[in-house]
Design a protein around this nucleic acid. Structure first.
Lengths: 198, 198, 198, 198
DNA sequence: AAGTAATCGAGACGGTACGTCCAGTCTTACA
DNA sequence: TGTAAGACTGGACGTACCGTCTCGATTACTT
C-alpha cells in the first residue's frame, strides 16, 4: 500500500501487478468522476477495467483504500506554484487553490466519502491525515516565514492558525455549503492577519 | 430551535402513524448510536422495531430522510443555556457546546455520514442546512448584539464570521482530527475578537 | 354469492351493496380482458373501480371467488341457438361454440386460472362444475334425444360420451395447444357417431 | 424420453453449478409435493436448500422455468413397460398410466398450475408441449403400428386420435372432476377402436 | 324527520415474496 | 504461481399485493 505517488514504477514489482493496479485505479478514477463516489463499486470497477474482483481484493483491503488511492492518483502533480513574497498573497493563493480543489476539481466528489470513511477506518484516517500534512506544509512554511520576519506574533500556534485558515473553507464546502468565492477567502485571510499582527 | 420532539402529538394525526413514526425513530436512533450510520438499515430498523418495512417506506421516502430524522430526534432539547453577558463568554459557550456535541455526544458518529450523504442527496443537503441555520441562530444573535453594542465592527459579515468561528471546530473534528480542547476554542474566539474589534 | 345472472337486481338488497358488487365485477372483468387473469389483483380492482379493498373483501371471500364471478358476469346470455334437427349438426354446433368460447371469447383467458384454482378450492370447484353442467345440458339433451330416436346405442353412457366429445376440445385448448378448427370438431363428432351407432 | 436426470454429470460443467442445480431442484420438488405449485417460492427454495437466491436466479430466468424443471425432475424414469401385443391393451395401458399419473402421482398437484402458467408464459408453454410430445410418442407408435397392420383405418389423423384418446382423461381430471376409473379408460378406448375400424 | 345502523372510502398496518445489486469469499482453469 | 473468470453465500434494497384492522363520512332503513 505504498503511496503510488512516490514512484510510478517500483523496482522489484511484478509487472503484472503494476499493470493491474494501474488499470484498476484508472477505472476507479473514471467512475469517481462520472458517477461520484457512490458509483465506485468493486463490481463496477472489475467490469469496467476487465480486472477480476479477486485481483482487486488482493491489492486493496477495503473500498475506502481503493477510493483513496484513486483519489490520490488523480491529484495534479503540484507544480509548486509561486504565490509571491507577501504573506497575504501566499495564504490567499494556498486557500484559493484548496477551495478550488474542494469544489471544482475532479477529485472533489471523493472528499466527503473519504472524510466519512476516515471516521471509522483508522488506517485510512492516517493516510488522509498524512496527505493533509503534506498539503498544508506550504501553509505552515509561509506562516513560519512570516513569524520569522516579524510579520506575525511570535507566540502564534501554527496548528491553530492552520485550523483558523483552512477551517472556514472546509466548513463552507462540507457543512454550510455556501459559495466559496475568492472574496470569502480574502476576508478569512484578512481577519487572520489582523488578529495575528504582532 | 423548536425541535421535532417539542410537539410529540400533532393534532390531526392518525395516532397509529404517530406511534409508528416514534417507534421507528427510536429504533433508528439506537442503531445509529450502536453501529454508526452505515448500520441504519431499513431492514434492521424493521426487525428491531417490529414495524413493517412497508410502513417505514410509507413514511420516509428515502433512507437519508429517515437517518436525518433519527439524528434530529436524538438531539437534546437545547435548554437555552445562559452563557453570560460578554460576547467572548457567549461565543466560547456556543463553540464548546458545538465541539462537545461533535465529539462526545451520542449523535457524534452520525455527523460524517450525514455530511457525506448530503453531498449526493440534495434533499438531505437542504435538511442539514436548515438544521444548521437554526442551530447557529444563537451565534448570529450574539454577533448582532455585539455589533449593536459597538463591540464589533459594524461592517462585519455575519455569515463569514460564523464560518470563521465554527469552521475551525469542524476542521479539527472532520479533517485534521486534532483534539478539540476548550483552549483551542478560546484561542479561536480570541483571534476572532482581536480581528473584529472596531 | 347467488348467481348474478339470475336477477340483476335482487329485491331485498341494499342498493349500495348492489352498486359496489356491480362496479367491482365490471372492473375485474375489464382487468381480466386487458391483462389476463394474472392482472386481476384486489389492489388493482380497488384502484380502478374506486371501491375500497375493505368493501371487496366484505363481498368476496377469496380472489378465486371474485374471478369466477367476474368470469360468469361476462358470459353472453346464451341465446339458445338452434343447431338444426340432426344429431351431427347439434353436436358440431355445441362443440364449435365451446371451442370458440375457449379460445376467442373475452373470458377465454379466465379458464386456465379457474381450473387451477378449482383444484384447491373446493367451493370454487363446485361452482365451476355446476357451471359446466348447465353448459353441457344441451349436449346431454341432444344425446338423449338421439338415443330415444334410435340414432345412438341405447346402452351409451352419456357422461362418458360428453367426456369423449368435449375432452378433445379442452385437450387442445389446455394441453397440446394445437389449433382448434371446425374440421377438428367435425372429425371428433364423426368418430363419436361412428362408434356410437346402434 | 431422455429425462434430464439421465445424465447427472454433463461433461464440461462446473461441478459447483451441477451441485447447486441439483440441490435447488430437490428442494423445489419437495416444496411442490408438500405445498403445491403455489408453495414453490424462490425465497422458500433458497431457505430450504441453503442455496442463495442469487444463485437460483443465475440458473433460472423465471419461476416457471424452475417449477417446470422441478416437475420434470420428479417424473419417474419410465421403465418402458410392456403393454402386450394388442392395440387395445397398449392404449389402455398408456391411458391408465396417464390417468394414474394425473391423479395419484406425487406430481399430480403440479399439473393444473403448470397448465395455468403455460397460458401466459410462452416459454413454459413450449416446454410443456415438448414434454407432452415425448410422453405421447409411445401412443403415436402404437397407433402407427396398428395402422400398418391394418387394424386401423389408413386415413386416420394421428394427432386427432391422440386428442380423442387423451382428451377425455384430461377432461375428467381438470374439468368435470369425475372419477378416472379403468372402466372409463376402457370405454374410451373401445369407442375409439369401434370408430377407427377400417 | 330524526335516529340508528349498515355500508362505505380511505388507508395504515404486519407480512411474504419479488427480482436486483453489491459485498466479500472461494473454486476452477488458464498462462 | 498468479491471474482472469465467475460461482458462491449473504444482506439489503425498494416494490407489489396480501388480508386485517381502525377510522370517520355517507347513505339507507326504521321508528
Amino acid at each position: 500500500m505504498a503511496g503510488p505517488l512516490s514512484a510510478p514504477t517500483e523496482p522489484g514489482l511484478d509487472p503484472r501487478v503494476a499493470r493491474s493496479r494501474a488499470t484498476v485505479l484508472r477505472a476507479a478514477a473514471a467512475l469517481l468522476i462520472e458517477q461520484g463516489a457512490a458509483g465506485v463499486t468493486i463490481e463496477g470497477i472489475a467490469e469496467r477495467s476487465g480486472v477480476a474482483k479477486t485481483t482487486i481484493y488482493r491489492h486493496w483491503k477495503s473500498r475506502s483504500q481503493l477510493v483513496f488511492d484513486a483519489f490520490e492518483s488523480m491529484l495534479p502533480s503540484m507544480p509548486a506554484q509561486d504565490y509571491g513574497p507577501t504573506l497575504r498573497g501566499q495564504l490567499c493563493g494556498i486557500l484559493n487553490q484548496l477551495s478550488r480543489g474542494l469544489t471544482q476539481s475532479e477529485w472533489a466528489p471523493a472528499v466527503p466519502p473519504l472524510i466519512d470513511a476516515g471516521d471509522r477506518d483508522p488506517e485510512l484516517r492516517q493516510l488522509v491525515q498524512a496527505f493533509l500534512v503534506v498539503r498544508m506544509e506550504r501553509c505552515r512554511e509561509a506562516l513560519r516565514g512570516a513569524m520569522a520576519r516579524g510579520e506575525l506574533r511570535r507566540d502564534l500556534d501554527v496548528d491553530v492558525a492552520i485550523g483558523v485558515l483552512a477551517g472556514p473553507v472546509f466548513y463552507r464546502r462540507l457543512v454550510s455549503r455556501e459559495p466559496l468565492s475568492e472574496a470569502f477567502v480574502a476576508e478569512v485571510v484578512d481577519q487572520f492577519l489582523r488578529s495575528g499582527a504582532p
